[in-house]
Design a protein around this nucleic acid. Sequence first.
DNA 1: ACACCAGTGTGGTCTGACCATACTAGGCGG
DNA 2: CCGCCTAGTATGGTCAGACCACACTGGTGT
Lengths: 239, 239
Amino acid sequence: MTGTTDRAAGPRAYEAVLASIEAELRSGELNIGDRLPGERTLSEKHGISRASVRDAIRILDVMGLVRTATGSGPNSGTILISDPAAGLSSTLRLHVASRHLPVADIVQARILLETWAAAAATERPLDEPSLARAAELLARMDDPALDREAFHDLDSQFHVLLSTLAGNAVVSAMMESLRLSIMDYVRHSVTTDEQWQPVGQALRTQHHGILDAVTARDGELAARLLRDHIEWFFTQTSH
Amino acid sequence: MTGTTDRAAGPRAYEAVLASIEAELRSGELNIGDRLPGERTLSEKHGISRASVRDAIRILDVMGLVRTATGSGPNSGTILISDPAAGLSSTLRLHVASRHLPVADIVQARILLETWAAAAATERPLDEPSLARAAELLARMDDPALDREAFHDLDSQFHVLLSTLAGNAVVSAMMESLRLSIMDYVRHSVTTDEQWQPVGQALRTQHHGILDAVTARDGELAARLLRDHIEWFFTQTSH
DNA sequence: ACACCAGTGTGGTCTGACCATACTAGGCGG
DNA sequence: CCGCCTAGTATGGTCAGACCACACTGGTGT
């Protein structure tokens, strides 16, 4: 098992385009924000059909490397972006669906990444604006009239924002993708408002505690609270 | 920024297939090893063209969820597999190429995941067969006649195997994908055999120390050695 | 000067065809 | 009866060409 040399998959036509774009990215010929040549141009340039070019672009799309738009003008066409979390999360979500990535493992990985991020954040210069934004998110979550959808949305933003404070783009992307990948799971785990009210209250309290710890630059406390926070919610929803 | 509801992308045709397959995966109708219906069948079933069906399958392919093979018989067609690391790593690699995921961040994330895995591994029942396999990998790496390509390959297997001992599939997949995503970088960082020889010797020694620590169930020591190991190699190659 | 509208280029989709492959079943010769 | 060999068949991979919806562009008419 774990053979390194995989199948001898025949050379795919679209790989030429992918390799070309990857090379141009590495060399700096292409940068975020640039527009890719049109599909018809690329097909001619690589000597393959437009359908195969579209395969490559579709792949870059799900990876979160480009966005496409129809029409004409500067905002149309295929444009390079950078949204690693989108690509990672869709991949993770489907693998979770296939039952080969247990939700428990995802939660454990989240704890690992988030607690590290919280601790690491306290060892860097204070990022006042981000902390202010985090506080504002919590304030909006305190509104008892907020429906669960909106709460989950703000909740997600709060956690992602916290993990961003550590300044590691890879960890942030993974964090966000882990969260997105189990968002459906979380959404459907609490089904009635009767179940929800007390849970929401507890989450609010925990969030404030975490943010306070981070603001006070107590990395150890922040990490512990975060761990308890995630573990607690998971046990609430997993039975 | 970080708006949750992203682009107002029009409904894509292939999404119907993706959603359908994801639902069947969740419900258990589909399982790893199963064959998907033929592309022509799916196109008729969803009322879309075969081209759009192929889009969906191509996406599943790059995600590491299916493999495709031409021909007829039980080994042909589109078959469900589970190779999360493949999909994650290709996404990561391209984002690294786009210069929006610094290599340093990847290395830092690897340290985080691997040290955790090593420590966690010592808190679980001993996995003798895996340890034996790890030892065998090291033995093969001790061969001074081994070329660098083969060494990197075994090296990679060793690290992935170690991270597997923690028993967390998500962490393992991320680990492997991080490693794959910077494999080119590592390969090209040491270019001459003169540079390589002493580096290889040091890596061998470090590997043995790490495995010894894990075997002795000293999680703290293993984590520390692993951190030093990765950081040391990175500093060797980054100047 | 302004409003309008045809033109143009973009990705999105569809249709239908052909190819290479790999297994399957049947025929043919032993 | 056995065994080899060939035609058949179903698969994904690729291509070509067409049409659509969309959004900006630039000229045209008032």
